[in-house]
């Protein structure tokens, strides 16, 4: 078990390294942009060239990636914070510490000052959505999987398929039209301040609804498929022919088996919710992580983007690991001896 965990941990680190390098390569393929973006559009070419030289931004890609990694683990100080650059970038934590994501050229702040706050906001939104998605998808999935092709199954299936076909911006438009414009009972934006006159809990209703609508149907479909397969297994017949009632067969024998395969799918939704909420956050002007990623990519804020990538990939690999561990817990057949 210890060996397995160590193995997985190494794999996780490797995945994160590869992912961060890929993002670095895509964003920094053309060198020199850091200087321009740090100095802003009004700096002269001379100033840009000077800074570029100082930051050694013309070094080969791998060398620059190595330097970024060095800053991250606290092996070398962040070159942007060097007073000689004249940028006056100052991180209160110092220039050299473990977990230094560098300086955000977009926000002119240390990345660590921006990103965690945004991540927290998104975590609340995602957490609320996840809390609704789990029971909804299980109920829908189990009920429609009970009797494949029955009236209930067909109704629920059509609902699920329809909902998964509605992207967040479309459901945002539909819901805002309904509940903000035609029947104004909810706010159309969610800036998480009470300035607009709406209490903060109200501001969560529509964003969460949009996320749940798009996502739960997909998970429910997965659970349905698994449930159908389980209901056809001979051990369900064994349970029925023992004289058990349908309810006891489902709760005692079918449910746990039916959740084995979709368990990973369910956990993967955490990934989607953390970083896939760009659209929802944009529609409702929600100050979250997804929007940060979008803004950083559009601006070319490599430090923020790298930090965001590392965090999303870290969340992804951790949920994958949790998924595997949960899988083992649910299914005694694959427990590591």
């Amino acid at each position: 078990m210890v060996k397995f965990l160590l193995n997985r941990l190494a794999m996780m680190l490797l995945t994160m390294l590869c992912a961060s390098f890929l993002v670095f390569a895509v964003c920094e393929y053309t060198p020199g942009s850091v200087a321009r973006k740090s100095l802003g559009p009004f700096a002269t070419q001379q100033q840009v060239d000077l800074l570029t030289a100082k930051l050694k931004a013309n070094d080969p890609l791998v060398v620059r990636y190595g330097r970024w990694l060095g800053v991250l683990v606290g092996a070398i100080p962040d070159p942007l914070q060097d007073p000689s650059t004249g940028l006056n970038f100052k991180d209160p934590r110092g220039a050299q510490y473990f977990g230094n994501f560098g300086y955000s050229t977009l926000n002119k702040l240390p990345v660590n000052d921006v990103i965690w706050n945004r991540l927290g906001n998104t975590a609340i939104l995602a957490g609320l959505a996840f809390l609704l998605i789990v029971p909804l998808s299980i109920i829908f999935g189990i009920l429609s999987g009970l009797k494949e092709g029955g009236a209930l199954d067909r109704t629920l299936s059509v609902i699920c398929i329809t909902f998964t076909s509605i992207p967040e911006f479309a459901s945002g438009v539909f819901l805002v039209t309904l509940f903000v414009i035609l029947w104004p009972i909810l706010p159309g934006t969610s800036p998480l301040t009470s300035d607009g006159g709406w209490a903060i809990p109200y501001q969560f209703v529509l964003p969460v609804a949009v996320l749940v609508i798009y996502d739960f149907g997909y998970v429910a479909r997965m659970i349905r498929v698994s449930m159908i397969a389980v209901m056809e297994r001979p051990y369900i017949r064994t349970a029925v022919l023992k004289g058990m009632s349908t309810r006891r067969v489902i709760l005692g024998h079918a449910l746990r088996n039916a959740m084995i395969a979709p368990f990973t799918v369910l956990l993967l939704q955490i990934n989607f919710l953390i970083s896939g909420v760009v659209v929802t956050e944009l529609v409702f002007a929600y100050p979250g992580f997804g929007r940060l990623i979008l803004e950083a990519s559009l601006f070319g804020d490599i430090s923020t983007l790298e930090a965001a990538t590392l965090i999303t990939v870290a969340i992804a690999v951790v949920t994958q690991l949790l998924g595997d561990l949960g899988y083992m817990l649910l299914d005694p057949r694959i427990r590591v001896r």
Partner: peptide
């Protein structure tokens, strides 16, 4: 594949399209 799949799909699109 695992590395690519660890990225949320939309982030791949946003990073790629914003840069290329």
């Amino acid at each position: 594949s695992d590395i690519i799949l660890a990225f949320p799909v939309l982030v791949i699109y946003v990073i790629l399209i914003a840069n290329i």
